[in-house]
Each structure stands twice: as structure tokens, then as C-alpha cells.
Design a protein around this nucleic acid. Sequence first.
DNA 1: CGATTGACGTACG
DNA 2: TCGTACGCCAATC
Length: 121
Amino acid sequence: MTTIKLSEKNKDFFDRVYQVARLIPYGRATSYGAIGKYLGSARSARMVGWAMNGCTQTDSDIPAHRVVNRLGVLSGKNHFTTPTLMQEKLEAEGIQVKDDQIVGFKNVFWDPEIALAIDNC
DNA sequence: CGATTGACGTACG
DNA sequence: TCGTACGCCAATC
């Protein structure tokens, strides 16, 4: 029974996470909840982070270092190649990081809904 | 196969 | 206003 691929269907959710994360502009950052909320599941922020897990290890075009929690804290820095790699990358883009936390996070916050301009009305 | 954890966030008391 | 509980769903033990 384990032959059933549970990821077959929900892969759609993961795929969207990658798509959105890949759209994060330079020098900007977003949160897991923002992405999950944009996908329609504000409470699945955990899945967003879990999805990102495949980004760092595969070194995809997805800037996982630009994705932080709602507080702007580098929650997943510990999962990068090096715990400091995330902070280093953010600082390299002009984002100030203090105590594993983005300085003026709201200033660099990138909302997928706004960026994608979902405003057909 | 069952129980627990986990890169979070919201809801409720 | 602050603290605790729950939900999300998949991966791991």
C-alpha cells in the first residue's frame, strides 16, 4: 500500500511554493505564511517551509534565503549549507540582519499577492 | 503501520 | 495584551 504516491496530488501545493519563491525579487524577502496564504492556505505555512527544504539541498533557482518567518527571523538558517549562509546572502543583497533577524523586515517584505497583482476586479 | 516532529501561523481564553 | 492550543500535511523514527 505504500506504493500510493501521496505527493502526487498535493505536489501542486509544493510546486506553487517554488514558483512564488522563485519570483522573489532581489533585496526582498517574504514569509512562509504569506506564500501559504497566497496559495489559499494560511495555516499551511509549515508545508511551505517543508517545501523549501528541497530548494537548498538541490541548489535550485529558488532563493530560500529570502524566505523567513512572519517575524523576519531566519528560522531555517540552520537548514542551509551553513547556518550563516542565509544571513550572508541576505546581507549581500542589502538586507540588514541582526541577531538572525531582518532589520526593517516590513521594509523589505515582499507580498506575493501585491507582486502578482491579483486584482482582476 | 503508528506516533512524533517540524523552515509557521491563526484562533481562542 | 499575553499565553496556550490547534491546524496544516508530509517526512522521519
